[in-house]
């Protein structure tokens, strides 16, 4: 399954709520969090990561991971938290609205 256009930024912010992660870690977190349904290639995630960093929603620093590897870790900034809040409520409204229209198809028994 591909990520719906424009939601990748939000997904990145959401995964960072639990704490700082490096780029590959974010990709992994989205994959496991979606139960393996969203398979995001790092190549497409990376520009999104840079974009939210550019907007000041995340900050980054070099840290050493649990497995003693140096990597660049990203963490949510207060601005990012506010942004996530806003996008989150927008998103739930959007999902509810779409679900209302997309009720069971007539003539189908499921």
């Amino acid at each position: 399954m591909d990520v719906v256009q424009g939601t990748l930024d939000m997904l990145v912010l959401r995964t960072l709520v639990f704490g700082p992660l490096h780029g590959y870690g974010i990709a992994k977190a989205i994959e496991t969090g979606s139960g393996g349904k969203l398979d995001i290639e790092f190549g497409s995630l990376y520009p999104a990561l840079k974009r939210v960093e550019q907007k000041g929603w995340v900050s980054s620093s070099w840290e050493t991971s649990d497995s003693k590897r140096r990597a660049k870790f990203y963490r949510l900034t207060p601005a990012g938290r506010r942004q996530l809040q806003a996008e989150h409520s927008q998103w739930t409204e959007f999902v509810r609205a779409v679900a209302a229209i997309m009720g069971p198809l007539p003539g189908s028994n499921t």
């Binding site: 990709a27 290639e41 790092f42 840079k50």
Partner: peptide, 12 residues
């Protein structure tokens, strides 16, 4: 799993 890194850097 990393994909095309050159392209990723270019887009970043």
């Amino acid at each position: 799993e990393m994909g095309n890194l050159t392209r990723a850097a270019e887009e970043a």
